[in-house]
Nucleic acid binder design. Structure first.
Lengths: 191, 191
DNA sequence: TAAAACGGAATGAACGTTCATTCTTGTATA
DNA sequence: TATACAAGAATGAACGTTCATTCCGTTTTA
């Protein structure tokens, strides 16, 4: 039968449970039940829980990356490109709350730190759109003269905070507020 | 012997283990060993692990609050007050990495969400220095006309991101960089 | 010496993982 | 076309481990 179908069910169940109840609150048995699958079946697709979680992360990263790169044009000026990327990320986060909650948990866990370290010191990949953008911004003197890592922090720190508040129901972001958020991030970044 | 001394050892051990290895990686037996105490003894001071963790959180919150309020003067203009608070928080975070790591984990867990909800809808407390500051800023038209929650996000999102990067060793924050970070936050906030 | 504090082995629940068995699907045979 | 069989996929009860919590004998305190 369709093999990847079952794999996807497992991943989806894991996403939902972990996003909602944390790594603690998502035992393999529960994931299996939610996926409509036997407990042992999971191990036909994933070596163990860690592998499952890491593959789930990769899946999400890929999806996010695809969404963000849609309609992204290197032709535009720095500011417009930044606004495009920021808006895309924020929109993705608030319209995919499960994905967002999972990613947050992942980043704030041993998994995430290891992953981050690998990324910074390892091979380059997709996320370098940002690095590229910031480096160009530095060269053109349109953003503050700060280490790239800090530009990242200034740009995405607020986005993530705002997305969390939206998802937890502390604000309701409409299109206008989203625009103002990104604009405010740019104000923090620009020279 | 000194009763509170033992309590503090337990709390300190819990802080270190959780900060370093997460909630998973801090079993009660290990906390007890690190505190130089029998496993059962912990239960003379804390009803259970959840209570221990929540009290640890309260302790940290209190400490942070005290540090931040030191030399805080309501006489000064909004911008100066913001810079004072931001600098104090950032300095505290980077010179108490264990505290910071614990707080991050706490906030990104069921504990944290519950706590946050209680706080927003519950009784007012210390943290209202910020609310007060932002409200005054809104009234005087010196900060952007946005919901208070979003002002929070714009102000503290970057601080937390920067602190994390420093602690993980991705940047080294000196006094100058700290100043520039806070200034950038203010740029994002101000009208 | 009575009472309180303490330590750490014992307990039982929960979890990740395994494996003997069952089910499904595709192929060969007559 | 009907039947037998093989091979892989799926299952879930069972296992071993880990952990929070309890219990009780020992030590300290007043």
């Amino acid at each position: 039968m369709a093999k990847p179908e079952k794999r996807d069910e497992i991943v989806r169940a894991a996403l939902e449970l972990i996003a909602e109840h944390g790594f603690h609150g998502a035992p393999m048995a529960m994931i299996a039940a939610k996926a409509g699958v036997g407990a042992g079946t999971i191990y036909r697709y994933f070596e163990n829980k860690d592998v499952l979680i890491n593959e789930l992360y990769s899946d999400l990263e890929e999806r996010l990356c695809a969404v963000v790169m849609e309609d992204y044009s290197l032709e535009q000026p720095i500011r417009e490109r930044f606004i495009h990327l920021g808006t895309a990320i924020l929109c993705y986060c608030i319209s995919n709350p499960l994905d967002f909650r999972f990613l947050e948990q992942f980043h704030n866990s041993p998994y995430g730190v290891v992953h981050r370290r690998d990324k910074l010191f390892g091979k380059t990949d997709q996320k370098d759109v940002y690095r590229e953008l910031f480096e160009e911004g530095l060269a053109q003197h349109v953003v503050k003269q700060l280490p790239i890592v800090m530009l990242f922090a200034l740009a995405f720190g607020p986005l993530i905070a705002v997305a969390r508040d939206h998802i937890l129901g502390f604000v309701i972001l409409d299109e206008a507020l989203i625009g103002e958020t990104i604009a405010a991030c740019w104000d923090g970044l620009r020279r």
